[in-house]
Computed example of a mutant assay.
Amino acid sequence: MDLLEYQGKQLFARHGIPVPSGKPAATVEAAVAAADEIGYPCVVKAQVLIGGRGKAGGVKLAKDRAEATQYATDILGMDIKGFTVHEVWIEGASEIAEEYYASIVFDRAAKAPLVMLSTQGGMDIEEVAEKTPEALARLHVDPLLGFQDFHGRKLAFAAGIPADLIRPVGAMLTKLYATFVAEEAMLIEVNPLIITPAREVVALDAKVTLDGNSLYRHPDNAALRDPSAEDPQEQMAHERGLTYVKLDGDIGILGNGAGLVMSTLDVVGLHGGEAANFLDAGGGSKSDAIVSAVEVILSDPKVRAVLFNIFGGITRCDEVAKGLIEAYGVIQPTVPFVVRLDGTNDVEGRKLLADANLPNVATATTMNEAAEKVVELAKTGVPA
């Protein structure tokens, strides 16, 4: 679950991480009142779950009440890369002597948290990593050992932090790591991490992604979820208990088991197609879950064809067939389907589909054949 900037800063503050004072506001009146209380100059910052706010005009420095009113009026309701601004964060202006970059992310390949630090803050970190990789210091942390004080000093020294700031920056990294662990985060990024003229270290930004599977242990964090800020298809899937990730293609994918779905994405790509989603119906899916899955997949207007790839174990293929037949009665899909059923009750499942004689539904016996068919259908709408 991604947090808005101000939510991330509030979380930081709970863990003793220095952040500028500020207040959220959902109306122009509330924004101006917050600016009056905080004082001028102040910064009016759009709150959306996307980067590039400054370049889009979503971050403005207000020198007085008139400018705060104007900027709040301009920014609230603004569209930034497809995200509508419903809130702004009014923050006291900060004096900046230097800008750094700091982040902690869970590195799945290394099976350990990765801490990164750079003196080139305020820039896209991808650009820094590509053009000047030596400017980005990295350190994997043994989860059992944890982040030690010497880790912070080692990173600061490797990143070229000035001598008088090595210990303060190291201490900041220690607090960020403690927050990462305590809140069960997947990502904590501060860009920029600023140094004030008084040589204080302050988190001027907060990008935080929490592990959605752990939210039941953190009710305060779970309450921060904003469904209106989420992708409509992903929100619908979440409400129905489905594992769904929206992608950029036009072929809807449903499988049972994350590994099978990922393999299906690869095979579809191998045949020249592009998946519109990742949807894992899970083990033991009943017909009602299949109906819900079809509704979620087809709620994406880009979908031109759908592939069911089911390898029955706990999941029964006849239940999947019943779900698709029921979905056709409820939704009446207009896009073609390719269905591959193999495993538990696959013969019964294929017989159910044959007897139902659903319009525009093709079957396949192998994953390779199914992928080839669905790619052709997505392009032409006519079975191969």
Rank of each mutant, 00 (worst) to 15 (best):
A289L: 13
F278L: 00
A276K: 01
G252S: 07
G249P: 01
D300H: 08
L254P: 00
S263V: 12
G273Y: 09
G252N: 08
E295V: 06
G313M: 12
G259V: 13
P301F: 06
A258Y: 12
E295Y: 09
G284T: 06
A289Q: 12
N277A: 14
T264W: 10
V294A: 04
L260Q: 08
L298S: 09
F311M: 03
A258W: 09
K286G: 09
M262P: 00
L307P: 08
V294L: 14
N256K: 04
L298Q: 11
S299D: 05
G249W: 08
A321R: 01
G259L: 10
F308R: 01
G284Y: 08
G272S: 07
E274P: 01
K286A: 13
R316E: 03
F311A: 03
D248H: 10
A321K: 02
A305H: 04
I310S: 08
D266S: 13
A321F: 05
A281I: 15
D288I: 10
N256M: 05
V320P: 00
K246E: 12
L254T: 03
S287G: 06
K246M: 11
G273K: 00
G323I: 11
P301D: 13
L247S: 03
L247D: 03
I290H: 01
G269R: 03
C317F: 10
F308Q: 01
I314E: 06
L279P: 00
V245A: 04
G257C: 07
G269D: 04
D266G: 12
V267C: 00
D300F: 08
S263P: 00
D280P: 02
L265H: 04
A258M: 05
N309E: 09
E295S: 14
A321Y: 04
T264N: 10
V268K: 02
G269A: 09
G269C: 07
G272I: 12
G283P: 01
H271Q: 13
F308I: 15
P301G: 06
K302A: 15
K302M: 04
G313Q: 14
G269T: 07
D280F: 11
E274R: 15
I314T: 13
E295G: 06
S299R: 02
F278T: 01
D248V: 08
S287W: 13
N277W: 12
V306Y: 06
K302L: 05
G313C: 11
V268M: 05
L279V: 06
V296H: 03
V296F: 05
G312T: 08
D250I: 02
D300G: 06
D250M: 02
V303P: 03
I251V: 15
G282P: 00
V296D: 00
L279T: 08
G249F: 12
K322Y: 07
I314N: 05
A305S: 14
I251A: 12
F311R: 00
D280Q: 06
G259Y: 13
S263T: 15
L298D: 08
F278I: 02
D318R: 04
C317H: 11
L254R: 00
E295M: 10
G283Y: 11
R304N: 13
A258T: 15
V294Y: 03
A293V: 09
L260K: 06
K286D: 13
E295P: 01
G282I: 07
A275C: 00
I297V: 15
K286H: 14
T315L: 09
C317E: 09
L307F: 14
L260S: 04
G283F: 12
L260V: 15
K246S: 14
N277L: 07
V267Q: 01
D250N: 15
D250E: 11
